[in-house]
Simulated scan of single mutants.
Amino acid sequence: MRSSNQDEPDATKIYSSTITTSKSSANVGYYIPAELLALEVTTPGGGGDNVRYYPYRDIESGYKQALDNVFTGVVKLPSPPDLSRAKQQGLDYIIQPQIVTSSGSTGFFTWPPTNFTVDLTSNVRDSSGKIVANPRVVGVGTANSERLFDHGFAGRRAMEDALLKTQTALSELNFVPHEIPTPINQAETSTEKRLSTLLDLKDKGLLTKDEYEKKRQEILKSL
Rank of each mutant, 00 (worst) to 15 (best):
K87R: 15
D92F: 00
T106Q: 15
R136M: 13
G152L: 14
L207I: 05
P81A: 04
P55K: 03
K64I: 07
T142M: 03
T101W: 00
A34N: 09
T21S: 01
S222D: 12
Q98Y: 10
D126G: 11
N134M: 12
P55Y: 01
R52Q: 11
V176P: 00
F149G: 15
A169T: 04
A38C: 04
L36W: 13
V51F: 04
I184T: 13
P183T: 06
E179W: 02
K130W: 01
K23W: 00
G205Q: 08
F116R: 03
A26Y: 08
S17D: 10
T12K: 03
R156N: 09
K215G: 06
Q217C: 01
V51K: 04
K214G: 00
P55A: 07
D82L: 08
T20N: 13
S196G: 14
L120K: 01
D119A: 01
K165E: 13
R57Q: 14
A34F: 03
L173W: 08
T191S: 05
D150M: 06
A34I: 07
A143H: 01
T182C: 04
A26G: 09
L170Q: 09
S103I: 09
T117A: 11
V70A: 01
E40S: 15
D10E: 03
F175P: 14
E160T: 15
V124G: 13
I131T: 15
P55H: 03
V176L: 06
P177Y: 09
I94N: 04
Q186L: 15
L223H: 13
G107Y: 06
D150P: 02
F108D: 14
F149A: 14
K215Y: 00
H151W: 07
E35M: 08
D10Y: 01
G46I: 02
